Amino acid sequence: TGEEYIAVGDFTAQQVGDLTFKKGEILLVIEKKPDGWWIAKDAKGNEGLVPRTYLEPYS
C-alpha cells in the first residue's frame, strides 16, 4: 500500500530507474526517501523514482 499523489507537472526520466509521468497523473508513493526522490508506481504498474517537488497529495 501507499499514498496517492497527483503530478503537478510533466517529468521525463533523466536516468535508468526514474519514472516518466504527465501532469494530472495519479501516482502511488511507496517509499519517501530523504533525498527528495520518492519511489512511486503509476496506473500501469510501472515503478520508479520521482521528484517529490512534482507531486501533491491527492484526496
Score class of each variant (00 low, 15 high):
Glu31Leu: 09
Phe21Ser: 01
Lys44Tyr: 08
Leu19Cys: 02
Lys41Asp: 02
Ile6Lys: 10
Gly24Ser: 04
Gly17Asn: 06
Leu27Phe: 07
Lys33Met: 06
Ser59His: 11
Lys44Trp: 11
Gly17Tyr: 07
Tyr5Arg: 02
Glu47His: 14
Pro51Phe: 15
Val16Gly: 12
Thr53Met: 12
Leu49Tyr: 07
Lys23Pro: 03
Glu31His: 11
Glu56Ser: 13
Asp35Phe: 07
Asp35Ile: 04
Val8His: 06
Pro57Phe: 15
Gln14Leu: 12
Asp42Cys: 02
Ile6Val: 14
Thr20Arg: 04
Lys41Trp: 07
Thr53Ser: 14
Gly24Leu: 03
Leu19His: 02
Glu4Val: 08
Ile30Gly: 03
Ala13Trp: 05
Val50Met: 01
Leu55Gln: 00
Trp38His: 02
Thr53Asn: 14
Pro51Leu: 15
Trp38Thr: 01
Phe21Lys: 00
Thr12His: 11
Pro57Tyr: 11
Leu27His: 00
Gly48Phe: 03
Leu19Phe: 03
Lys41Val: 12
Asp42Trp: 00
Glu4Ser: 13
Thr53Val: 14
Trp37Thr: 15
Arg52Ser: 15
Ser59Thr: 15
Gln15Val: 09
Leu19Gln: 01
Glu25Asp: 11
Lys32Asn: 03
Thr1Met: 14
Thr1Gly: 15
Gln14Thr: 08
Tyr58Ala: 10
Asp18Ile: 15
Ala40Tyr: 01
Lys33Thr: 13
Ala13Asp: 03
Thr1Pro: 15
Gly9Cys: 05
Ala43Thr: 14
Asp18Met: 10
Gly2Arg: 13
Thr12Gln: 10
Lys41Phe: 10
Gly9His: 15
Glu56Asn: 08
Gly48Tyr: 02
Gly9Glu: 14
Gly9Ala: 14
Ala43Gln: 12
Glu4Gly: 05
Val16Lys: 13
Lys41Asn: 06
Arg52Cys: 06
Val8Cys: 05
Gly48Lys: 01
Thr12Val: 11
Gly24Thr: 03
Trp38Tyr: 07
Gly9Thr: 12
Val50Tyr: 01
Thr12Asn: 11
Trp37His: 08
Ile26Met: 08
Thr12Trp: 11
Leu55Tyr: 00
Gly45Asp: 06
Asn46Asp: 09
Gly24Pro: 01
Gly36Pro: 04
Gly36Glu: 07
Ala7Lys: 00
Thr53Cys: 07
Trp38Met: 04
Phe21Trp: 02
Ile6Glu: 04
Gly24Ile: 01
Lys22Thr: 11
Ser59Gln: 14
Glu31Thr: 12
Ala7Trp: 01
Trp38Gly: 01
Arg52Pro: 12
Phe11Glu: 01
Asp10Cys: 04
Thr12Lys: 09
Phe11Asp: 01
Lys22Ser: 12
Ile26Leu: 12
Tyr5Trp: 14
Asp35Ser: 11
Gly2Ala: 13
Glu25Lys: 02
Lys33Asp: 09
Ile6Asp: 01
Pro51Asp: 13
Tyr5Lys: 01
Gly36Met: 07
Arg52Tyr: 10
Leu19Met: 09
Glu25Leu: 03
Leu27Trp: 01
Thr1Phe: 15
Gly48Thr: 01
Glu4Met: 14
Leu19Glu: 00
Ala40Leu: 03
Val16Asp: 15
Lys23Asn: 06
Gly9Phe: 15
Glu4Asn: 12
Lys33Leu: 10
Gly48Leu: 02
Ile39Phe: 11
Leu28Tyr: 12
Trp37Phe: 11
Val8Gly: 04
Thr1Gln: 15
Glu3Gly: 08
Val50Cys: 03
Lys32Leu: 05
Tyr54Val: 09
Gly17Gln: 07
Gly45Trp: 03
Lys32Asp: 03
Leu49His: 12
Ile6Thr: 06
Gly45Arg: 04
